[in-house]
Design a protein around this nucleic acid. Sequence first.
DNA 1: CCAATATATGAACATACGCTCAGATATTGG
DNA 2: CCAATATCTGAGCGTATGTTCATATATTGG
Lengths: 131, 131
Amino acid sequence: MNHRLPMPARAKSAKKTAPDVCTEHHAPASHPDAKIPPLTLVESQRMGEFFAVLADPTRLRLVSLLASDEFCVCDLASSLSMTESAISHQLRALRAARLVSYRKEGRQVFYRLHDHHVLELYQTVREHLEE
Amino acid sequence: MNHRLPMPARAKSAKKTAPDVCTEHHAPASHPDAKIPPLTLVESQRMGEFFAVLADPTRLRLVSLLASDEFCVCDLASSLSMTESAISHQLRALRAARLVSYRKEGRQVFYRLHDHHVLELYQTVREHLEE
DNA sequence: CCAATATATGAACATACGCTCAGATATTGG
DNA sequence: CCAATATCTGAGCGTATGTTCATATATTGG
């Protein structure tokens, strides 16, 4: 069965030159213009957490609402026909990822997208999926 | 407790004018330049699935490797110090999401990024997280 | 044909996640 | 202060997901 176990030694040999792995190797070099080092484990975990926040339908619908205007939790819950508790939990995740900011006004808390980068990313992917 | 249950009627009232929800409403209108309709449930699910594929450290490291060159499964597994089975499962997910393409050459299968959109999205988010 | 190599796949297990429910916290009005 | 409103939070449940393990498929060499 698995003829190459985890192998702590050896790894990280593939950087920019052709990696000398497998019995024979044909070194295709299809992206010659690249100099980008691969993600480290920690970097990939960070990036994964970022994408994971956007990998939920409810949070994406929240972002799509906030792309047009500022809303309080109550309005967001009503717009999505969900409980305010569920929305509050999801807003917590969006806050932790710095995707939204908020502003307190009396008993209400108004949420908005954190900055233009969020709006741009959302619109880019939206257009990409509309093809 | 929850003073506003799922409410199937009523929802979808917040489109472009200020949504009339909550007892009092202060209509802040912070993004006046918007005309983007919010995501439907189905659209948000599609978009969520797309982000979910990129929400895993292993798949992101695979994308980061393929951003520089074309690799066979064996090389990818070796580079990440993981079993070829695990890598094959993840490549399957990347294939299903049309994020990678492949080319068979004898016993080996060489994977590459599907198109330049993938590379651009990856690089954009990478730069965004480097701040 | 058969052994070896390279990859793919299904089942199973452990973990992670989203929602609900109950309750806590905070602010306003009487 | 107390009731009502608006939001937040922790525990628990059901489901989804990534890896391992065993096995299957496919291609090459002898």
